[in-house]
Simulated scan of single mutants.
Amino acid sequence: MQIVLSGKTAIVTGSTVGIGYAVAAGLASCGAAVVVNGRKQEAVDEAMARLRQAVPGAQVRGVAADLGSAEGCAQLVRAEPAADILVNNVGIYGPRDFFEVPDEEWSRYFEVNVMSGVRLSRAYLPGMAERGWGRVVFVSSESGLNIPADMIHYGVTKTANLSVSRGLAKRMAGTGVTVNAVLPGPTLSEGVQSMLKPSAERAGRSVEDTATAFVKSQRASSIIGRAATPEEVAHLIVYVCSLQASATTGAGLRVDGGVVESLV
């Protein structure tokens, strides 16, 4: 199957590193004009340079905006008023005991992980519907189904992503616009590598081996028995954004390595 997205504009939030960057590269390789987003201009510029090197001839633009606020989302929309594809990828995470998470942290997680996608979907979906075609993808997580005891605040936001995407898919029925959620499992992104690096150094082993040990001990139901790569997750997201995925909407699509113990 050949995915062609020439003539389409794709916005990928939080796309300077990790899954977001891999998605941006995948969409660019299919011919889409890609808008890279990050909080800092330097990171956006570096990501655009990497993309142009990785995908010769790529059409890449960048917008530095902190999407954890209404103003940051409005800044992105002012810079890029229309899009055919929106990948709501930006997110924050980190283990912390429930009894140590203050109200402010709950609010911060909700603003970044949930409200960024709500605000941007509200801004871009009407234009997609008017043109009769569009793709919106929320990057959720297996943690939205398997709420981790040490990241309850994070898991709740990922469950919210599933609710918003399912409801929006119904709201956009008959418009030619699909809305889906993709649920990665443990993924060896730059952020996860940074989180695991201290323990890897203490144990005298590689970050990759440390990630595998984490999966086997903390996500023992994993069928692949390792962390996925950002590219493996991006492959599914790129497909969901394609013309070929026109009958897939309102779905929660897992790329979790089989972590979730569910038949569907």
Rank of each mutant, 00 (worst) to 15 (best):
L188K: 05
F138L: 08
V17K: 15
N161P: 05
R135K: 15
G155D: 09
E42T: 15
A47N: 02
Y154D: 06
G155Q: 08
S194D: 14
L243G: 10
L51S: 09
A181T: 09
R202N: 13
F138Q: 10
V182H: 04
R39H: 11
A169N: 10
K8N: 08
L27F: 03
V55P: 01
Y154L: 05
S141H: 05
A74V: 01
A220V: 11
G252S: 14
N89C: 08
K8D: 01
G185L: 03
S242W: 00
V60Q: 00
V63G: 05
S189G: 03
L263I: 13
G57C: 05
D45Y: 01
G26K: 02
T157V: 07
V179I: 13
G252T: 11
A213K: 07
G132E: 09
G155L: 10
F98E: 11
M128C: 07
K158H: 07
P148F: 07
E261M: 14
A181C: 12
P56F: 04
G134T: 07
I19S: 03
G250M: 08
P56M: 05
A220D: 12
G191P: 02
G144L: 11
M115Y: 07
V90N: 03
A43V: 06
E142N: 15
R202A: 15
E80A: 09
C30Y: 00
T212S: 14
A79L: 02
D66V: 01
A234E: 08
V23N: 02
E111C: 02
W133A: 06
G174I: 07
E100A: 14
V17T: 15
L51T: 13
E80T: 15
A200F: 08
N161I: 00
L5V: 06
D66W: 07
Q75A: 15
L120N: 09
D209R: 12
T178I: 03
Y154I: 03
G134P: 04
G250H: 09
L168V: 04
T159N: 10
V137M: 11
G250N: 09
L162I: 14
G31R: 04
